[in-house]
Simulated assay, not measured.
Amino acid sequence: MVSIASKFLAKKNVVLSDIDAEEKLLSSKDKSVDKLRTLALAEKLAAYQDLLYAQKKHKILVILQGMDTSGKDGTVRAVFGQINPLGARCYCFKAPTAIESAHDYLWRVHQQVPALGEIAIFNRSHYEDVLITRVHQWISAAEVPQRFAHINAFEKMLAETGTTIFKFFLHISKSEQKERLEERIADPNKHWKFDANDLKEREYWDDYQVAYQEAIEATNTEYAPWFIIPANSKTQRNLTIASILEEQIALMGLAYPPGNPDIKKLVVK
């Protein structure tokens, strides 16, 4: 039986323009049904998180990357919204502070990786340091492969010390991004989401596609695989990511730790 995850694994020599951002492999053809399926999966993930937190044996890192408006925030709400905050946290990587810039670029990232029993969700991540920095030529061409090697070594270290890594690229089309940006401009209730810099970055769309393609290919490893998620449909994006996580976490053998026989002898007076 073919796993759900295998259908979305990044292939070698990935060309994003060849991947249909409208694709709906898991669709039931009924949007309301698919939203309920996502909710059910999110509740399963919450149950797994409870086991993860109790067992204190595994760590899970979820990385969300994508162009502006691709739905990173929406994914966090829909897929992880049922999880107990005690055992999960989301970190959003913004432009580095002066202190962070004074260190190597992975310094601030390492501080946010999950502890035992924890799920950490990166809304953007260390990959920004081989994306925007490259597109705007803030790093040299020679530094790019160096950073790919750094990232692979960093993720391998995390994997070898108990972290299961899921990397999701939320793939939207340029026309879909245009519609979403226009919605934010037209709706005053969405102005808080709007950043004028998004329009400037949009001018570099093709450069970002190349940067993403090469970053995905260079860092798509067995211990930290990339999944390319068609994301023009918000419902299918959420359903796909929730399905992959539920399927793969179910294989981790999570369980509550054995009971303590001495505790069972205690009497509450």
Rank of each mutant, 00 (worst) to 15 (best):
E176N: 06
E203I: 04
I241Y: 08
Y212K: 04
L170P: 03
I216D: 13
N189K: 13
K193W: 08
A159I: 10
K234Y: 03
E160F: 07
D187M: 00
P230F: 08
E217F: 05
E182N: 02
F227Y: 15
N197F: 09
S175A: 06
V210E: 13
A218K: 08
E246S: 08
F166G: 04
E217R: 10
P230G: 13
K178R: 11
I244N: 14
A159W: 12
H191S: 09
F166W: 02
E179W: 03
E246C: 08
A215P: 06
R237V: 02
W226Y: 07
E217Y: 07
S173W: 14
R184A: 07
Q209L: 14
A211Y: 06
E214V: 04
K174D: 05
T221Y: 09
E179I: 05
I241H: 10
W192V: 04
V210C: 14
M157E: 10
E201K: 14
Y208T: 06
E179L: 07
T164P: 12
M157I: 10
P225G: 02
E246N: 03
R237W: 05
T219E: 14
S175Q: 05
E222R: 12
Q177S: 05
F166A: 03
R180H: 00
L245Q: 04
I216M: 12
A215E: 05
E222F: 10
A211F: 01
D187N: 03
W192M: 05
A211C: 05
E203K: 11
A231D: 11
Q213I: 00
I241L: 07
W192G: 07
E179C: 07
R184H: 07
Q209M: 15
W226C: 09
E179K: 09
Q177K: 04
Q177G: 03
E217H: 11
F166K: 01
N238S: 11
D187R: 02
I228A: 02
D207A: 15
Y208W: 12
K190Q: 15
I185F: 00
A196S: 06
D198C: 07
M157T: 10
K174W: 03
I241R: 02
